[in-house]
Simulated scan of single mutants.
Amino acid sequence: MHMKRLLILILFITLFTPASAVADCTTNACVDVFTQDNQIIITAKKGDGGAVVKKRTVVVPTPKPTLWFPPKPKAVPAIKRTYKPRVRVKKVVTASVNLSDRLIKMVPTATIAYQPEFEPLVHVPVIFWCDLPTLFQSRVDIIGEVIDVALRPGFAWQWGDGEIFQTNEPGAPYPNQKVTHTYKRPGTYYVSLIATWNGNFKHNGATRVITGTIKIPSFAVITVVSANSTFTK
């Protein structure tokens, strides 16, 4: 009974495996997209690297020999002989072309901005944002193969006071307040933003996940001050 269920499960996986899970290596070209050293690496290869033997017929005529007879008292007619040219077959070996290439793509880097720009106050929300897009797309033509790459970033803010905020929003200036932070004490804080990129690529109608992620850090320094009390009559 257990073996029967296992066979049914294997048959179900085989029949209903999506096209995105099929490796492109089974087609005319093998492509792959992955990350390395915070870069997008795109590789493509086609051709089996073997050799194709072609036969070409080359007609090489054999030189016709000259007949010579010693002189005799009577004229003796020369004997005519027919010579057929020899046909030689020459083999020409042509190695098949093995194409491969490797491309490197970089994702955008972020610049941090905040409001108010000059000496924000304690206990007042500070608005933060960066200039990264929410979608990075690139179409690559490599050894005649078209590959579409798409990545989206996630954002991890560290405000410098021990608090962390994670979001999929890059933020925006006022009046947008999707990314804000309120400091409780005056001081100079080092703000860091880690943008983590991941996504997929499409080739010959099949969509596959890009192996690995890309993490790009950005930094900013903010000085927060306390508000002075003013007494009036």
Rank of each mutant, 00 (worst) to 15 (best):
L193T: 02
V93H: 07
A78C: 04
T180S: 05
I216Q: 10
R56L: 11
Y189W: 07
F16V: 04
I194D: 15
N98A: 10
R86T: 15
T14H: 11
D141N: 12
N198L: 03
A29R: 01
T207M: 11
T26M: 10
R185A: 01
T94Q: 14
K72P: 02
P65R: 14
K4H: 01
N168L: 13
P116K: 09
T232W: 00
L9W: 05
P73I: 05
V60G: 08
P170T: 03
S100M: 10
I143P: 09
P61C: 07
G187L: 09
W157T: 07
I79S: 11
V221T: 15
L6K: 12
P173S: 00
E117A: 13
R185G: 00
T230R: 08
D48W: 00
Y114A: 01
T57C: 03
K91E: 15
S192D: 01
F118K: 15
V209H: 03
V89E: 14
N228F: 02
S229F: 00
N204C: 01
Q36D: 10
D131A: 07
K84R: 10
G212V: 10
V146G: 09
R139S: 06
G171E: 02
K184G: 12
K80R: 12
P108N: 04
L15A: 15
I10W: 07
T14F: 15
K4M: 01
E119H: 13
K184S: 15
V92L: 13
V58T: 10
K55L: 15
Q36A: 09
T94A: 09
V224N: 05
L121F: 07
A44Q: 06
A156R: 14
G50I: 01
D131H: 10
F219G: 02
R152D: 00
I143L: 09
V58N: 04
I164K: 13
V140C: 09
I127D: 06
I8M: 06
K72Y: 03
V146E: 13
I127H: 08
V53Q: 06
Q166N: 12
F231W: 02
I164Q: 05
G154I: 01
R102G: 01
V76D: 01
S20R: 06
P186N: 05
V60W: 15
D32P: 01
G212P: 05
N176F: 12
I142K: 07
G199I: 05
V53K: 10
T35K: 09
N228D: 14
G47Q: 04
L6F: 14
G144T: 03
G171A: 03
P170H: 04
V53A: 02
V221C: 13
H181R: 02
I104M: 13
N200M: 06
V31G: 00
F128K: 06
